[in-house]
Measured scan of single mutants.
Amino acid sequence: NQASVVANTLIPINTALTLVMMRSEVVTPVGIPAEDIPRLVSMTVNRAVPLGTTLMPDMVKGYA
C-alpha cells in the first residue's frame, strides 16, 4: 500500500506548507503520494485542512 500525505496539524487556508505540517501514512482513500512531500513544501492550501486529513491534489494550489 502506498503512503499518502496527511496533515500533522490543523493547516489554515492559504498557509504555505512546511515539512512539520505533513506526515506520511497509509490511508483510504489514497491522497497525494508521500514521495511528493518535498515538492509540496512552500505550496499553499486552498482550504483549511484539519489534523489527520489526507491531502488531496485539489487542496494544494499548483499541485494538480
Rank of each mutant, 00 (worst) to 15 (best):
A48F: 10
L55E: 02
D58T: 09
V45R: 00
T18A: 11
L17K: 00
R39V: 07
T53D: 14
V49M: 05
D58L: 08
V45D: 01
I11H: 00
I11D: 01
L17V: 04
K61D: 15
T15C: 05
P33W: 06
V41I: 12
V60I: 11
P29R: 03
D36M: 12
D58H: 14
P33M: 10
T54L: 04
V27H: 03
V20M: 15
A64H: 15
R23H: 06
P29W: 03
P29M: 04
S4E: 01
P50W: 07
T18V: 08
V45C: 05
M43A: 11
N46E: 15
A3T: 09
V27D: 02
A64G: 11
V6A: 03
D36S: 13
I32R: 00
R47A: 14
V6W: 01
T53L: 12
L19A: 11
L40T: 00
A3M: 08
L40W: 02
A7Y: 02
M21E: 03
R23Y: 07
N8Y: 03
R39Y: 13
G52W: 05
R39M: 09
T44G: 05
V6E: 01
A7R: 02
I37R: 08
L40K: 00
L10Y: 11
P29V: 06
N46P: 03
S24I: 06
V6L: 13
N46C: 07
R47N: 07
R47V: 07
L19G: 05
V20I: 13
S4M: 02
V20L: 14
E25R: 04
S42R: 12
R39L: 11
G52E: 06
N14E: 09
T53Q: 10
I13S: 11
T9K: 12
L51N: 13
L17F: 02
M56P: 01
I37C: 06
P12Y: 07
T28N: 09
L40Q: 00
G52I: 03
N8I: 05
P38T: 10
P33N: 09
V30E: 15
T53Y: 06
T54M: 04
P12I: 04
S42N: 14
I37V: 08
G52S: 12
Y63P: 04
T53G: 13
M22I: 14
V49N: 01
P33K: 06
I32P: 00
A48E: 12
T9G: 10
T28V: 14
T28A: 11
A64E: 09
T28D: 15
Q2M: 12
V30F: 09
M59I: 05
P50G: 13
G62E: 09
G62Q: 10
E35I: 13
V26P: 09
P29G: 03
L10D: 11
R47C: 09
N46F: 10
A64Y: 03
L51I: 14
L55H: 00
G62M: 09
A16E: 13
T28P: 00
N1M: 15
P12R: 10
M22A: 01
M43V: 04
E35M: 07
N46T: 10
N8K: 12
N8A: 14
Q2N: 13
V60N: 02
S24A: 13
V60F: 06
E35Q: 06
I37L: 15
S24W: 06
Q2I: 15
V5D: 02
A16N: 07
G31R: 02
A48L: 14
M43Q: 07
V41Y: 05
V27F: 02
I37S: 04
S4P: 01
E35T: 11
T53V: 15
M22L: 11
T28F: 09
V5R: 00
S24E: 15
V60Y: 00
V60W: 01
N14S: 09
S4N: 02
N46R: 08
A48N: 10
I13R: 07
L55F: 08
V41G: 01
R39C: 14
V60G: 01
N46V: 12
V6T: 05
